[in-house]
Amino acid sequence: MSTNRGTPLVELRDISISFGGIKAVDKVTVDLYPGEVVGLLGHNGAGKSTLIKCLSGAYKADAGEILINGEKVDINSPRDARALNIETIYQTLALADNLDAASNLFLGREIVNSFGFVDETKMEAETRKIMARLNPNFRKFNVPVSALSGGQRQSVAIARAVYFNAKILIMDEPTAALGPHETQMVAELIEELKKQGLGIFLIEHDIHNVMKLCDRASVMKNGQLVGTVNVNEVTDDDILGMIIMGKKPAKAA
C-alpha cells in the first residue's frame, strides 16, 4: 500500500489544538487512503487521541484543516463527523451502560416509524442481524450492556461503527481490554473492512499488532509528529525508536 495514489480519503493538515496553554497537538499532518490502515503511535499523552478527536468531532481544532476526498470540511460536532461517514470506536467504548445493545447501536440515530416513535423491535432485529455477522455467539440482546463482558461490549461498539456504512473508521485501542481470541476477531474484522475499501486510523500500543495490522504508521511525541513510515520497510525496533527517542529512521516514507 506504499504506492500512495490519487486523492487521500482523509487529510489532516497542520492540526493544532491546545488546552490551557499546553499544546496537545502541534501542527500535525497525517493522511489516510481508501483500503488502508494507518497506525497512530506514541506514548500516553503524545496527542494521538486528541488529534483523532478533532476528526471525530469531539474537539474542534484551533488551527489546521481537514480534507475529505480532497475537499475541505468543517467538523463541529460528532453529528457532523457521522454525516461524513466517519465512525469512531472510542477507547472507553462510549456506551450507555444502562441501555441494551440495540439502544446503544442506534444511539443518536434511532429508527423511527411513521408516527415518529422509536421502532424498538426493528432496531433489535437489525442488531441481531449485524451481531450475527460480527460476533455469532452474542445472545444478550435484552440486558443493559453493563451486564456484558469486555469483549461483548467491544463488539457492540464495533457494530455501531460498522452498521452505518462507515467510509472512515477510527479505532482507539480496540484490543486493549480483550483476550487473545477476541483480539484475533478484531484483527480479522479489520482485514475484512480494509478489503471493502474503508480507511482506518488505528491507535495502538502493541507493536506486534501494529506490524501485523497497519500499512503505515504515524508516530507522535509530545504533541508533534515524529514521522510516518511504511510498516513493511522498517523493523519494529525502528518504530520503537521513533516512539521512545522521537528519532526518525533513515529510510522513512
Binding site: P78, A94, L95, D97, G116
Partner: peptide
Amino acid sequence: TRTRFGRYVFAIGGNPEAAALSGI
C-alpha cells in the same frame, strides 16, 4: 419509552460523555 427524547434522557443518565459523542 417510545420517543428519541426518552432514549436520550436514559442515555445521558447512563453515560453523559457517550451521549454527547453520539451526537446528542
